[in-house]
Amino acid sequence: MKPFSYVRPADAKAAIAAAGTEGASFLAGGTTLIDLMRLEVMTPSAVVDLGRLAMTAIERAGDGVRIGAMARNSDVAMHPLVVERYPLLSQALLAGASQQVRNMATVGGNLVQRTRCPYFRDLAVPCNKRAPGSGCSALDGYTRSHAILGTSPSCIATHPSDMCVALAALDAVVHTRHGSRERAIPIGEFHTLPGEHPEVENVLGQGELITHVELPASPFAAHARYVKVRDRAAFAFALAAAAVGLDIADGRIRGARVALGGVATKPWRSAEAEQALVGQPPARATFERAAAAAIVDPKPRRDNAFKVALAQRTIVRALELAWGSP
């Protein structure tokens, strides 16, 4: 680890002030930051420890739920409000990482989780995300874990989060504070595509603090499912994951949500798939049409071509399970 100054502010205001300087980084659960600092993939000049900030509440907010940025993944996953109203989020969180990591990782931290691309983690090789302009080692390298959607010639790294896929499906809103300015960022606008600047992964400014996430009321609790396909039965990143919700009334799909993980450079919401579902009867044929619609212009590489079919099938499976078919 590169030496850094350690700051443990007592409140959000002090935290934002401390993190205002270039190179400063917030420390929440540490499961990404400490991991990458030890590799010196991340080398913050200052670490601003949010451990003393009281931002852990999970509470009702109007018809929805408000989750503090420092709420632990495991606490969120097991919270009655979440289990009851947003089972999709609970399932996604429990599908991620290990119990230890879930006990440490926070909602705010998970929103800014970094990719697991092996080239990003290896200082000895070029990586545009880590060292802008150095090149992408993955493009013609080993690409089994990489993205097929949202890629650019600069970067094909997969967004690794499970939680964010559920948040994307649930229309979460990320609330931040920056100085005296507060803003609410819809989850779909929070993460950015790599384009020519894969080093930029979200719209947060330097020192902008995520305070909480709000989930609007959801009609999908009765028919929601997170399905994750991976190489091991637990503790592995997704080869493909789908978070879906169906609002079914009178034998028709009134509303639908479809989001993908493990196959895209950001949590991937598919309006095309949702469109293909709405108004249709819940049936395998409908689900297959939606799944086909979800994968628009994929850019598979040598080792991840299977993800095109796998992503579609994962959507179909998630929709079937959400619907309640065997």
Partner: peptide, 22 residues
């Protein structure tokens, strides 16, 4: 990596061994 002969699977997240659930 076929181009460089450098190991790509450099840790236990990329080199999978069985876990309890397997």
């Amino acid at each position: 990596d076929a181009r460089t002969a450098r190991m790509v699977t450099r840790d236990l997240a990329d080199y999978h061994v069985p876990v309890h659930a397997d």
